[in-house]
Simulated scan of single mutants.
Amino acid sequence: MQFSKYHGLGNDFILIDNRQSDQPLVTPAEAVKMCDRHFGIGADGVIFVLPPQNNCQYTMRIFNSDGSEPEMCGNGIRCFAQFVTELEGKEEVGKQYPIHTLAGTITPTIKGEGMIRVDMGEPELTPAKIPTTLNQGGEKVVRESLTVADKEYEVSCVSMGNPHCLVFVDSVADIDLEKIGPLFETHAVFPQKTNTEFIEVVRPDYLKMRVWERGAGITLACGTGACATVVAGVLNGKCDRTCTVELPGGCLEIEWNEEDNHVYMTGPALKVFSGNM
């Protein structure tokens, strides 16, 4: 089986040309083995380029490194779009790729030199649709109290097609992410588990963020998490609608557009190598 390895700010993926079948060519258990950094290729997930659905040019599915399947992945979809230019044999600046995902249609635009801009759609703020049991019956989850490991946190929740719990802190460097991340992910108030972002406001237009990803653990970057970070920052009155979000692997440019309510993410997607397995 041929594959290509890509990364978006260190969030790395194995990309497989799956256009000949509408089902992934490997099982979740096989994906776990492929993602193993000592005994496999090594990655945060395996992404499949499947045939078109719902008037989209391609379909994207992804298995996380633990074998679970998320609805969407922001860094992953940028890598997906760049991989498609490899499959098509050309990189056409300005070309858009409507992609069918479990979170709906997501549209990346090729910017050139490895940069991709993605229309991530509208954020979902309704508690039941995130989903979370926090503030049930309310319009949104902003500055809600959540107790984790006997400590009370003030959290906000956003879905970018997948669930996010966002916590503003004085310093992201002081967070014991390996310890606290799994406790947030599996907390009872998140029936489908959750991604968790800890955010430090440097300036209204510049945020630092560290992430514990549902199904993958600590990663160097999370595109949907960066989008959710800016949405939560605006809702909490802590940042502008256009921000640089600094992650351990680098920076993403995020805009929550007031006119169409869509979130736009711009960042790199770079090929590491190709091979056969």
Rank of each mutant, 00 (worst) to 15 (best):
M1C: 00
Q2P: 14
F3N: 01
F3T: 01
S4I: 01
K5S: 03
G8Y: 04
D12L: 10
I14E: 09
I14K: 01
I16P: 08
Q20N: 15
P24S: 13
V26N: 12
P28F: 07
K33W: 06
H38E: 06
F39T: 02
G42E: 05
G45E: 12
V46P: 07
I47A: 10
F48R: 03
V49A: 14
L50Y: 01
P51G: 11
P52Y: 13
N54R: 15
N55Y: 10
C56I: 01
Q57E: 12
R61N: 15
R61P: 12
I62C: 14
D66M: 09
G67T: 02
S68G: 04
E71Q: 13
C73D: 00
C73I: 01
N75C: 05
G76D: 03
R78T: 05
F80R: 06
F80N: 06
F83G: 00
L87D: 12
L87F: 07
G89L: 09
E91T: 14
E92N: 00
E92M: 03
K95R: 15
Y97M: 13
I99H: 09
T101G: 11
G104Y: 11
I106R: 07
I106H: 09
T107K: 11
G114H: 08
M115D: 00
R117C: 08
R117Y: 04
D119H: 08
M120K: 01
T126V: 15
T126L: 14
P127V: 08
A128S: 14
T132I: 12
L134I: 05
G137K: 10
V142R: 03
R143S: 14
L146C: 07
A149H: 10
K151L: 02
E154N: 04
E154L: 14
V155G: 09
L166T: 01
F168Q: 10
V172P: 02
V172Q: 02
D174M: 02
D174T: 05
I175T: 01
E178K: 03
K179C: 04
P182N: 06
P182S: 08
T186C: 11
F190C: 04
P191G: 06
T194Y: 07
F198Q: 00
R203M: 08
R203L: 09
P204K: 14
V211P: 02
E213D: 11
G215K: 02
A216D: 07
G217V: 12
T224Y: 04
A226N: 06
C227N: 01
A232P: 04
V234C: 14
V234Y: 13
L235W: 02
N236E: 15
N236Y: 04
C243M: 06
T244Y: 09
E246W: 00
P248A: 03
E255M: 01
E255Q: 06
N257H: 09
E259Q: 13
D260W: 11
N261Q: 14
N261V: 00
V263W: 04
T266F: 01
L270P: 03
K271T: 04
K271L: 14
N276H: 09
